Computed example of a mutant assay.
Amino acid sequence: MHRSYQPLKPVTNRYLQQRWDHNEYENHRRKVISALPVVDNKGMRTPAHVQLKLKKMQWQDERLSIIDRDNRLLASKLADIVCSKGLVDHRNQNHLRSLNADKRREELLLVGRQNRAIYQRITARQSEYRRQLWLDDWERTERRRDEISQHPRGLAEKQRSSRKVKFAAAESSESSASCSNTDRTTEKPETQTDANNIG
């Protein structure tokens, strides 16, 4: 077989050259098989606290302990029911009692005392408003206004109150007796006002 082997370079002994080349190729194959990668592509190692999850284990232990305690309480209640003679215990002996009741009671008493003190101060205080002074001041203001004004205010109001005007539609709807009475009352002031205007 070494006689059919053709090396790349001219050699004196083909058999030895074939064996050397074969050995070099085997060494090369071994090196390729045992070669390690130059680039580390394995990724990051998972931290121990993520793998183990101690908090989750603690939560599971606490949950199991709560379940065991509830089971023991339930078993004790069932045992009491079995040992009793069929009596129904439906009354709750534990009364609800707030731990903060004393403090709230003291605060309510303090607020009540403060409110009473405020009420006594308010009722004992004399009023600073003087209604008579206000009325006297208003009368003085009205007198000055009447003295200053050219036409007194009271005359126009008296004329307006004594004078009554009736419309034709309103007169037709009313009865004749009521109309005659209102006409008599309205005629007198009109004649008086006409006389005043003429004079």
Rank of each mutant, 00 (worst) to 15 (best):
62 E>S: 05
62 E>R: 01
64 L>Q: 11
65 S>R: 08
66 I>H: 05
70 D>P: 00
70 D>S: 06
73 L>K: 00
73 L>W: 00
75 A>K: 01
75 A>L: 03
75 A>Y: 04
76 S>I: 12
77 K>R: 02
77 K>I: 07
77 K>P: 04
77 K>C: 08
78 L>P: 04
79 A>G: 01
79 A>M: 01
79 A>I: 08
81 I>S: 09
82 V>H: 09
83 C>Y: 14
86 G>S: 05
86 G>M: 04
87 L>P: 10
89 D>C: 08
90 H>G: 02
90 H>V: 06
91 R>W: 08
91 R>D: 07
92 N>C: 02
92 N>E: 03
93 Q>E: 15
93 Q>C: 06
94 N>E: 11
95 H>G: 00
95 H>S: 11
96 L>Y: 02
96 L>H: 02
97 R>G: 03
97 R>E: 11
97 R>L: 14
98 S>N: 07
98 S>D: 05
99 L>M: 13
101 A>T: 03
101 A>F: 05
102 D>V: 15
102 D>K: 10
103 K>N: 15
106 E>D: 08
107 E>H: 08
107 E>D: 10
107 E>Y: 07
108 L>W: 03
111 V>G: 06
112 G>L: 14
116 R>K: 13
116 R>Q: 08
117 A>W: 09
119 Y>L: 13
119 Y>T: 12
122 I>E: 13
123 T>I: 09
124 A>G: 00
125 R>S: 09
125 R>N: 07
126 Q>T: 13
126 Q>N: 08
128 E>G: 11
130 R>Q: 10
131 R>N: 13
133 L>F: 01
134 W>M: 15
134 W>A: 13
134 W>K: 15
135 L>D: 07
135 L>S: 07
136 D>F: 02
137 D>M: 09
139 E>S: 02
139 E>K: 06
139 E>T: 07
141 T>Y: 15
142 E>A: 00
142 E>W: 08
142 E>Q: 09
143 R>H: 10
143 R>N: 10
146 D>G: 04
146 D>N: 14
147 E>D: 12
148 I>H: 00
148 I>D: 04
148 I>Y: 11
148 I>L: 09
149 S>W: 06
151 H>Y: 15
152 P>E: 10
152 P>Q: 11
154 G>T: 11
155 L>M: 12
157 E>Y: 02
158 K>H: 13
158 K>W: 12
159 Q>P: 03
160 R>H: 04
160 R>N: 01
160 R>I: 01
163 R>I: 03
165 V>Q: 05
167 F>Y: 14
169 A>Q: 06
170 A>E: 15
170 A>R: 05
170 A>M: 12
171 E>V: 11
172 S>E: 15
174 E>L: 06
174 E>K: 12
